[in-house]
Every structure is written in structure tokens, then in C-alpha cells.
Design a binder for these strands. Structure first.
Length: 680
RNA sequence: CGCGGGGUGGAGCAGUCUGGUAGCUCGCGAGGCUCAUAACCUCGAGGUCGCAGGUUCGAAUCCUGUCCCCGCCA
């Protein structure tokens, strides 16, 4: 077999949210494919990165009063932790906000300019005067002009399905500030796609690069008409890369996001002494993108167009998958089926999700349904009851001893399964994982029947049959190992444990073709624990709770007024170093008194636990009575320089929100916080 | 409205291109085994393959019509 050089990407997760089980369909699908290719001995590089730019990130950072860089750094850590937990192993995980990415954005932009593909045009966009930014369609909400449904986004109505522009909305409102946007003219930069129309038709319709249904979709929806120019600039302020020859603008996030694939590859090359050109400007390198169907046109029209113009290698194949549904419905926050990867991983072994997805994934872009009952039945019976069970029932009769020195007669089982190897491999290659799993499970059934027929538990009782017992176990364990090799792209952890059990690490697909002999068998330990229905219930409940807690931060649906933020605009940006200078502590109010002669102040004695106390004068008399305060927990600034006041020394402040007067609200830590805990 | 996908025993699916009266996994019922995480093995019940026509010696499979579901429209 010739060794292929394969570059694989999964879509870049947006830094505005955590990884959830819907995302995992893609990362698990891709990771399996990559592990399969590596197992087959090909050179395969798997890169990804966080997608970090855009208005959403900018606004969230503002709301949270920190820099975009701090926000995206935190999200990148969280994303990578989630991926690691689900055994998704990237060779490099980068960021679109990197210098390598900027470099390739410049290069590709330069190429578009040179080719004469960039044009300017004036467009009128909704503008938020208060925030001072132009609004994307989804940041404008209002009443649908056709069916009058309230609270619809600026591009289309999800009630009646009609499309329109934001200025057609009745009573439009900026979701950022709550103010009414004005329409303002701006000059933006566009990349022309139409000159590549013929090329794109050929590239998409030739049957090599896309699934048939995707090719049909493009043909029917886009390629039948003139291709519109693509709007790739956004006026500042915008969190993104400044366009070098148009410095009032940044590139639209969707311009630099796919270029992140190249940036991340470059990062890897730098670390491993390789040339990026060998991966991206080399017809011998295969490039495979795995994406969801929601971003089809970016990857099948814009992206090939940009690459073509800039002289990069075009994707060999774009693999497009459908969405995840849960129990037949869209994931729902209120039903608790919008489950974050971290939440799932806290309750259920990620191996099970990898297996379940693979048992249902085909090569087409059908949606995939996670039915909890089906999930429990399938993973328990297939993985625990069938696969792992083979080792569990055979290993104990031989552990501590060795497998036979030559592989015994096994009624042709090993050979039959070995012969099926190429068929299984071809299913993996074509992303028909469900078919591969089908074949492999049939092998597991045969192996279990073999053990059943040979009755090692009976042989064990007769010392004269010791040799036969050893043979049966050698066969069973070899059949088990063969199955695990076939499953190892899906179940890397089980492969690892099997390697340890039999003292022979699984590193190559070829190992499935030859039985091992003479290896010492270690003591068998459970490789998987069955899934309990209870775990699912707890996980769903927890997801419900998480989502209802998060909802207020999401803002718009609660109709919170913009007034408080307007009344007191955000302070100047501060660094994390600045923030940690302020030592906020949980404290208990152990004494509260009126202050003789003061009309706003109360005197509080705060306990930080143990003997540590602070005497604090707080301007909260108008809202709180001293007797109501005693015993409650508050947050105080514990390292504030003491200040002498008319009534005595004040050694800190208590944190409170509100406009003043009756509207003063002390911060209250959730249950469980103890005096002395620092607030981070 | 348009485009795309789909409707097969209780559940999830394969089979449809290359027609020959239906298959897999789970669940269910009976029995067996007791090595194994109530795991494993055997047998069984259960489907007029959405509906109605048509082509054919013969259709889940091809054709026409029809009902329903889902997805997509920068």
C-alpha cells in the first residue's frame, strides 16, 4: 500500500460557547477517521483551532468587562479540555487570532487583489449609535413585516419563514443596547465569486469532492444563478484582523476562519520542522474537511474560490454531516437535552458516546438521533455484553500464564474475521462507520458463541484438559484482540487497555491479520462500566439547571432594560493583573449598628472566618436595617487601604449594586461559600 | 410555493441503484448455561415494507398519483 499524506480538519469551534454533544458528532467522526488513517500507516495530520473573531466575541468581552484576548484564551482552554476528555486528538490546536493566521490572511488577500477580485461598494447597514457599531442581521430584532410576529431576527422570520432586510422590520431594536438602530451607509469590500463560476460548477459537480446530495443542493440553489459578491469587510470597531489596504476595516470572521486551517497547519510545521507548502501547495497531499451542513456554502463555494485564486491546493473532499437530535427532537435547553460535553463527560464514559455515534454514522448528511433508551441498550449490550465480555470470560482462566506458542485451530474464525478486514477498512475510509460496526459486532457474536460451545468453565475442572483450556482461551483472546483492533479508531482507550492485557500494544491495522502467541496475559480488569439510566436522568436534570442559570446572561429573551448600563457605562478596560490586585472575600456580618450622626452609614463588623474581622462603614442605611443584616454573607473588598472617616476607621467595603437610595442590593454568595473564600 | 431527504415487526435501522413474496441490533416470550458487569447461547412470537393504481410471470425494490414527517433556502 502506498503511504498517503493526508491533512484533515474539523470545523473550528466558535469561542463564544462551550462544546456540546452536537459538536461532538463532528469531532468524534473526524477523530475516528484520522485514527483509522494513522492505524493504516498513512501520514495523517489533524488540525483544528478556535474561531475567535467577530461581533459576538467583542460584545461578550465588553459585557464581561475584559479583553477579547482574555475571553478567547479561557474558551480555548475549555474547548481543549473537552476534546481531550472525549479522546479527540488533534496534532495541532491553534487559534484564528494568531500571527500565523494573520500571515496567511494577508497572503490570500493579496492574491485576491492581484487577481482583481476585490471590489468596493457602498451598503446601508443598521447602526447602533450607542455602541458605535454596525449590526449584523442577527443583532437586530423586531416585528416581522409580513406576519407581524414579534421578536424576530433581522434576516428572516422563523414563524412565517419570509426573508427581508433589517430595515424592513417593524420597531427594530438592537439586541446589544436596546436602542433603535439607524441606517447608515458604509463602504465595504467584496470578493467576486462569479468569475470562478465555471470552475466551481466543475469542481462541485464532478462527483469527486462532495456527496451527491450536496452537489445537487449547490446546483439547485446557487450555481443556477449568478454568484453574488461576498461581503468580507466589517467596519471597525470589530474584533478581527485589520485589512492592510483598508485600515478602517477588518476582515469578516468568515474570511479568516477557514484560513485558520492553514494557520494551524503552519504552527504544527514550525514545531516539527516541516514546510507548510508541502501540505497546502502540493497536489500529492490530500486535504479532507469535515463540517456540518450549516456551513456548507462557505466550504464548497467561497473557500475553494479563495484557494483557487491564491494558488493553494483544493480540498480533496469535504465531508458533510447532519445535525444531532435528541430523542427525535432538536436539542432543547429547557428539556435539558442541550448537553455540554463537560456535563456529559462528568456522568457518562465518553467511550460510549464515541461508540454510539459511530454505530449510527453513515457517509450521507442525514441527521443523527441520540435516543437515550437506544443509547443505553446499545452500548451496554454491544460493548459490555458482547465485546468486552469476550475478554472478561476468557482471560481469567489464563491470566498470569501465556497464550499458546502456536495459534490453535479455531474453526476458521480468526481467518474469516481477518478476511473481512479490508471490507471494514473500506467502510471506515468512506465514513460508513455504521456498516463497519455491523460487521465487527457479527464477529463478536461469533466469538461469544465459540466460548459458549467450548465451555472453558467445564474444561477447567478437569486437569487433563489444561492444554485444551489454554487453547480455547488463546483463541478467544485473539478474537477479542482482533475485534478491538478493528474498533480501535472508535475506542482508543479500550485498545490501550487491551494492549496492556496482552502485552502487545495496538499500533497498526495489520495486527488484525495475525494472531499473537506466547504473550503473557495480565489479570483482567473491567474495561467499561455499564451505563445506568439514572446517570442519564441526572445529566439531563443538570443540563436543565445549567441552562436556566445561563439564560439571564444571554440577555435579550428576558427583555432586560438597557438603562442600568447606560446610567453607568463600562469603565476603562483593565487587565487580569489589575483585577487580581483587588482581593474580594466572602465575609459574614457579625455586627451591624446605626452610626450616631451619620445619615447614610451603617457600621458593620465583618468576619473573614477565625479571628479575622474588619470594621467597615457602609453607605447602605437607606436600604437595610441593621438587624436584618446580622448573620448574612456578603462580598467585601478585603485589602482596601484603611481610611479614616469622621466616625472611625473603615477597613474595607462591601460590594453592592444598584442606583442608590432604596435601590441598593448587597451581593450574596450562593450557598456553600464560607467566610474567607476569595472571589475569583 | 420551491428544492432535498424520509415513511420497512414495540424502538433504532439495513435492503431499493443491479426486481424473485423481508433482514439486522435492541426489546419481548420460552428454554439452556453459570466462565462473564442479570453478561452469554438456542428457539420463538411479532411486519399485507405510508396509501392507491400501473409495468411485470413476479415489486419493499421500477413508473404514476396521493397522504404524512423532517431538513434547507448566503
Amino acid at each position: 500500500m502506498t503511504k498517503r499524506r493526508i491533512l484533515v480538519t474539523a470545523a473550528l469551534p466558535y469561542a463564544n460557547g462551550h462544546i456540546h454533544i452536537g459538536h461532538l458528532v463532528e469531532y468524534i467522526q473526524t477523530d475516528i477517521w484520522v485514527r483509522f488513517q494513522k492505524l493504516r500507516g498513512h501520514q495523517c495530520l489533524f488540525v483544528c483551532a478556535d474561531d475567535t473573531h467577530g461581533t459576538a466575541i467583542m460584545m461578550r468581552a465588553r459585557q464581561e468587562g475584559r479583553s477579547e484576548e482574555a475571553l478567547i484564551a479561557e474558551m480555548s482552554q475549555a474547548h481543549q479540555a473537552d476534546f481531550a476528555k472525549f479522546q479527540v486528538a488533534f496534532d495541532n490546536y491553534g487559534s484564528t487570532n494568531s500571527e500565523s493566521n494573520r500571515k496567511f490572511c494577508h497572503e490570500i488577500w493579496e492574491a485576491q487583489r492581484k487577481a482583481g477580485r476585490v471590489v468596493e461598494a457602498e451598503v446601508t447597514r443598521p447602526f447602533d449609535e450607542q455602541e458605535g457599531i454596525f449590526l449584523a442581521d442577527r443583532f437586530v430584532k423586531g416585528t416581522c413585516p409580513r406576519c407581524k410576529s414579534p421578536d424576530q431576527y433581522g434576516d428572516n422570520c422563523d414563524k412565517c419563514g419570509c426573508t427581508y432586510t433589517p430595515d424592513e422590520l417593524i420597531d427594530p431594536v438592537s439586541t446589544l443596547s436596546g436602542t433603535t438602530p439607524t441606517m447608515k451607509a458604509t463602504t465595504q469590500l467584496f470578493i467576486q465569486i462569479e468569475p470562478l463560476h465555471d470552475f466551481l460548477t466543475e469542481w462541485t459537480q464532478c462527483g469527486q469532492h462532495l456527496q451527491d446530495e450536496v452537489a445537487n443542493y449547490l446546483k439547485g440553489h446557487f450555481l443556477g444563478d449568478k454568484l453574488r459578491d461576498w461581503d468580507v469587510s466589517r467596519p471597525k470597531p470589530y474584533f478581527g484582523f485589520e485589512i492592510p489596504d483598508s485600515t478602517d476595516n477588518c476582515w469578516y470572521v468568515w474570511f479568516d476562519a477557514p484560513i485558520g486551517y492553514i494557520g494551524s497547519t503552519h504552527d504544527w510545521c514550525q514545531k516539527h520542522g516541516e514546510q507548510t507548502e508541502d501540505w497546502w501547495k502540493n497536489p500529492d497531499t490530500e486535504i479532507h474537511h469535515f463540517i456540518g451542513k450549516d456551513i456548507t456554502y462557505f466550504h464548497t463555494l467561497f473557500w475553494p474560490a479563495m484557494l483557487k485564486t491564491a494558488g493553494f491546493t483544493l480540498p480533496t473532499k469535504v465531508h458533510i454531516h447532519g445535525f444531532l437530535t435528541v430523542d427525535g427532537e432538536k436539542m432543547s435547553k429547557s428539556k435539558g437535552t442541550f448537553i455540554k460535553a463537560s456535563t456529559f463527560g462528568n456522568h457518562i464514559d465518553p467511550t460510549f458516546l464515541r461508540y454510539y455515534f459511530s454505530s449510527k454514522l453513515g457517509s450521507r448528511l442525514d441527521d443523527l438521533d441520540l435516543s437515550f433508551q437506544d443509547f443505553i441498550d446499545k452500548v451496554n449490550s454491544d460493548l459490555v455484553g458482547k465485546v468486552v465480555n469476550i475478554a472478561s470470560r476468557a482471560a481469567k482462566f489464563i491470566s498470569g500464564s501465556e497464550l499458546c506458542d502456536s495459534y490453535p485451530a479455531d474453526e476458521g474464525l480468526f481467518e474469516q474475521a481477518a478476511a473481512e478486514g479490508e471490507q471494514i477498512a473500506s467502510y471506515y475510509e468512506n465514513c460508513d462507520y455504521s456498516q463497519a460496526i455491523r460487521l465487527i459486532m457479527a464477529q463478536a457474536d461469533r466469538a461469544n458463541k465459540y466460548v459458549e460451545d467450548k465451555q472453558p468453565w467445564v474444561l477447567r475442572k478437569d486437569p487433563e484438559k489444561a492444554t485444551e483450556l489454554r487453547e480455547v482461551c488463546s483463541v478467544a483472546l485473539n478474537l477479542f484482540r482482533q475485534i478491538v483492533i478493528y474498533l480501535s479508531p472508535v475506542l482508543p482507550e479500550i485498545a490501550q487497555k487491551t494492549g496492556e492485557l496482552l502485552n502487545d500494544p495496538i499500533t497498526s491495522w495489520e495486527q488484525s491479520q495475525t494472531p499473537i502467541t506466547g504473550n503473557k496475559v495480565e489479570a483482567y480488569q473491567h474495561m467499561l462500566k455499564r451505563v445506568e439510566e439514572k446517570s442519564i436522568e441526572i445529566m439531563v436534570e443538570e443540563s436543565k439547571a445549567e441552562n436556566s442559570a445561563e439564560a439571564p446572561a444571554a440577555g435579550s429573551q428576558w427583555n432586560d432594560s438597557a438603562e442600568p448600563l447606560e446610567a453607568e457605562p463600562l469603565a476603562e478596560e483593565c487587565s487580569i493583573e489589575d483585577f487580581v490586585k483587588v482581593d474580594l472575600r466572602v465575609a459574614r456580618i457579625i455586627e451591624a449598628n446605626h452610626v450616631e450622626g451619620a445619615d447614610k452609614l451603617l457600621q458593620l463588623t465583618l468576619s473573614l472566618g477565625g479571628d479575622a474581622t474588619r470594621n467597615v462603614f457602609a453607605g447602605i442605611k437607606s436600604a437595610y436595617a441593621p438587624e436584618d443584616l446580622i448573620g448574612r454573607l456578603v462580598v467585601c473588598v478585603a485589602n482596601l487601604k484603611p481610611r479614616k472617616m469622621r466616625f472611625g476607621m473603615s477597613e474595607g467595603m462591601v460590594a453592592a449594586a444598584g442606583a442608590g437610595g432604596k435601590e441598593i442590593f448587597l451581593l450574596n454568595p450562593d450557598d456553600g461559600a464560607k467566610p474567607g473564600h476569595r472571589v475569583h
